[in-house]
Design a protein around this nucleic acid. Structure first.
Lengths: 346, 346
DNA sequence: TATCCTGATGTAACCGGTTACATAAAAGCT
DNA sequence: AGCTTTTATGTAACCGGTTACATCAGGATA
């Protein structure tokens, strides 16, 4: 037998097997269309030469990439990990791959990523939040790449979203604290200028306060990145105010945990001295002491629904339809009705 | 001007601009080789038609993908997030993309992922741990794809690794507890059968005990997945033994946190009643109360070194050389010398 | 036995951009 | 002014697999 060339190709294998390149291609991609003996002869050569087809040529000639792109704002918050794993498992079952890109909460980085993914001709794109340059949505439509917004509902019919309602969920949490008797409610949330989910949660907080005729006090609000040490510092600042809050609504669990640990360090008892509600319902919130109340975000369900929608779009040209997924406020040991706060010495 | 076709191509743009396809290609990829007026004329058309080149054709004809593959065992442990972000930032600066794949601690899933990445012709591959079917390393060499093992040193010169030494780091932590006077040291680690890093940490724990003539007690060891609730349960079981440990070495921080919270729930004081050391040195361990002692893993530095090595390999054919990166045991408030344990009622 | 249908296989054009090599014009130097 | 060098641009072959269409052989049916 002739020695293998530097790069074994389907053409070379075809020659060795005495068949056409189409037959080798069929043996690899649609083996049931090839006669059993022919198929075995081809696969034997494939294995002997450790042949792995060149995906660059395959995606070029088939005009398919089999890839769905996902852009998340960070990979260090495990709520996105759960969401991503849910998507990945569904896509894998459908024979598609997930390409994960991290935008690091940067609109500019995200723009570059979107263009790169369009250049790669991904067969679908999953976005986080709906707020971005409209031209990017136009470009996706121009290239007929199905897309869907997640982690935020979309106000426009032309921008499909599969998400829970941030405002409704944040309103429910804020309202619960009010119903527990709290009036001075602190908010720790993300940077509303670059994060539309944080902005929506903040708006809901304000609007519920207004609804209950509770004056909005900017001093009780802290916007900062989702880093636990930053959150702990923010909580420390809030709870050591002259007139501190008696409750904290944290727009994500990392911040709620930071707040909890800061209170522990300051010997402020949760929930006796201060109630805390988080958002996401990460596993860790069930394990800390006391277990944190939190808005349960159905990340896995949202991931599955998102993947299913894009599989339908990519494989069967089914348009992506918006869906709203419910959240659930889970009350645990970090919240209780307001009791008169003991005055703490300066 | 003639209407744009269904799919605008470089060929069509060339015709519109009155130049050749090579010139359009140059205008996009190497604009400095095209005369300024020609370049502007071409880019004007590109913008007008919202043209994004077809990456499928580009990667095919150039035989370049510009992609480095990274396989991590999970995306829900944020230590991998830090590592991944470090790699991504370096690659981005070098004009390369990172394709992240999640193996979910499954050797079979990883095998499929490796083959898929070879088929995609990634220009480099970053692996986690060195233990896997040798045929996979052979296949990577066969296709001349540079690779590197991370999160574990490699015993073989033919398998380059860039990592800290798990055994040395785990030995240091175990030894520290012994030097603090602890003899009954519990170990909570990952599943050693599928996780060579867990296996190495476990081996180091055993070997240090042996060195100090401390009998190995299997009852003090708990192997289970890295889930915080499972870790809390494991810790609960260990600390409620008839003859419980006076210290816990947890082979990652998630487990250390689970152990800490379990102790808090059981009113077992850390470090007075039991010392705890974790591994990874996640930000949260600095914030909890008490702050956890932990082996600091230089994830960012390892990420940068790994990316640099593969950029060198992919772009300049520089062979990847193994590197060992140090760790550092950070002692915080969760460890103290052994004091006689109060007898707890059954 | 003849005709029709199905399964297996071959042919060859094609996908869209890249780039080695060639050519022409412009710039620089003597 | 003539020659050399540099810059800008064109030509066209190529990358490796996919697949629409065609063909042939074998099986089924009338």
């Amino acid at each position: 037998m002739k020695d293998a060339p530097k790069s074994v190709t389907i053409r070379w294998l075809a020659h060795q097997a005495g068949v056409s390149v189409a037959t080798v291609s069929r043996a690899l991609r649609h083996p049931e269309t090839v006669a059993p003996q022919t198929r075995e002869r081809i696969l034997k050569l494939v294995n002997r030469h450790q042949f792995v087809p060149d995906g660059r040529a395959a995606t070029f000639s088939s005009k398919r990439t089999g890839v769905i792109g996902l852009i998340i704002p960070t990979i260090s918050n495990s709520i996105y990990a759960e969401f991503t794993e849910a998507i990945q498992s569904r896509l894998q079952a459908a024979g598609l791959s997930l390409l994960i890109a991290n935008a690091n909460y940067s609109a500019e980085a995200e723009r570059d990523i979107i263009r790169k993914l369009i250049e790669s001709r991904v067969e679908g794109l999953i976005l986080t939040g709906y707020k971005r340059d409209a031209a990017l949505y136009d470009l996706l439509r121009h290239y007929r790449i199905p897309f869907v917004v997640t982690w935020s509902t979309s106000p426009k019919a032309s921008i499909p979203s599969i998400s829970f309602d941030n405002r409704a969920a944040a309103a429910e949490a804020t309202e619960m604290l009010i119903k527990l008797g709290h009036q001075r409610i602190g908010l720790i949330c993300g940077i509303t200028g670059v994060n539309d989910r944080a902005a929506q949660r903040f708006e809901a907080y304000r609007s519920v306060l207004a609804r209950y005729k509770i004056p909005f006090d900017a001093e009780l609000v802290s916007e900062q990145p989702f880093e636990i040490e930053v959150a702990a510092d923010a909580a420390t600042r809030l709870v050591t105010l002259t007139n501190p809050p008696t409750a904290l609504f944290c727009a994500n669990d990392i911040q709620a945990l930071g707040a909890l640990f800061a209170c522990q360090r300051l010997k402020i008892r949760v929930p006796k001295d201060i109630s805390i509600i988080g958002f996401d319902d990460l596993p860790i919130v069930r394990v800390v002491s006391p277990p944190l109340s939190s808005v349960h975000v159905p990340a896995r369900r949202m991931g599955h629904a998102t993947a299913d929608a894009l599989i339908g779009a990519a494989r069967k040209n089914i348009p992506v339809k918006s869906q709203i997924i419910g959240t659930e406020l889970i009350m645990r040991g970090s919240t209780m009705p307001l009791v008169p706060a003991r005055t703490r010495p300066p």
